[in-house]
Design a protein around this nucleic acid. Structure first.
Lengths: 145, 145
DNA sequence: GATGATGGTTGCATCGTCGAACCTTCTGGT
DNA sequence: ACCAGAAGGTTCGACGATGCAACCATCATC
């Protein structure tokens, strides 16, 4: 592994984080004033329609206490509904409400717009490579939790 | 722009953020229990040795109030020293102390190790492409502030 | 049935960011 | 020279996000 390559990547990653605003807690990639963590959670819950709370934590790589509060917020907005998980008296099953589904769709649109704008600023001939690299990176980033 | 491409990139970006732990405030890419924001700041200050506070804010894309407190923390650790900017009675010039230089070097090592580990999990033949893509992305992410 | 693992909730601490109010200093126009 | 407005900093208050520890209820296992 060439050290120069590592340094360049490191520098680029830092710049990306700053430039894309991953820093700013509320500057969510979805126009609306939606807290980032809630946005991530909504993506997962909406994908399945219903999801065990513990599974949400696993996917988001968050502590159960954090997840609990996160879900509290979503429930407060009326986007998800806590149900008893069947077959396990301890567990909580998160169910997306109609309002939640609508909200999730709206958020997905806004997110897609933001990503489209980003990729629009990538030269045509590199776009495919960038998309692929992003996937590779996402997989490589998995750390044995 | 193909919609599928955008969706894939979006998904990958989300996964990367979670997997790499960009979520976790204190899980700094540099082993030590160093707050993320301070790490970013140290990179910039160390790069120059001395830096105007306002310029630090520009590079980090942070509000001046945030920068002020950030610098407070760094000064508290004895890593930077506030000096009057010459030629401008309003400004503050941040000067890296010896201890700060040492700390910055240590942090850089830890960061490089983390990045090396990440790139090690990327297949050989894709590594160069990933590094390049990261740079492209970082540039594309610049939004007219 | 005890014992330990698992899923959740709540309290406490820390971090990180913004916007607004305020002060000081520079800058430009009159 | 002056005055109005811009710009750099600091402080204050609010909110968002996370973790760990303590605690409770419910499995699961021996």
């Amino acid at each position: 592994m060439q050290s120069a390559e590592v340094d360049a990547a490191q520098e680029a990653l830092m710049r990306f984080v700053r430039n894309f605003g991953l820093h700013q807690p509320d500057r969510t990639p979805c126009g609306q004033p939606l807290p980032v963590s809630e946005a991530h959670a909504m993506v997962e819950i909406a994908r399945e329609g219903r999801l065990r709370q513990v599974e949400l934590g696993r996917r988001l790589r968050l502590e159960k206490s954090t997840v609990s509060r996160l879900v509290n917020n979503l429930a407060g907005r009326g986007w998800v509904h806590r149900k008893a998980a069947d077959g396990d008296g301890r567990g909580v099953l998160l169910v997306l409400t109609d309002a939640g589904a609508t909200a999730a769709a709206r958020q997905a649109d806004a997110r897609r717009a933001r990503l489209t704008a980003l990729l629009d600023r990538v030269p045509d001939e590199e776009r495919a490579a960038v998309a692929r690299a992003l996937q590779t990176l996402a997989e490589a980033a998995v750390e044995p939790s």
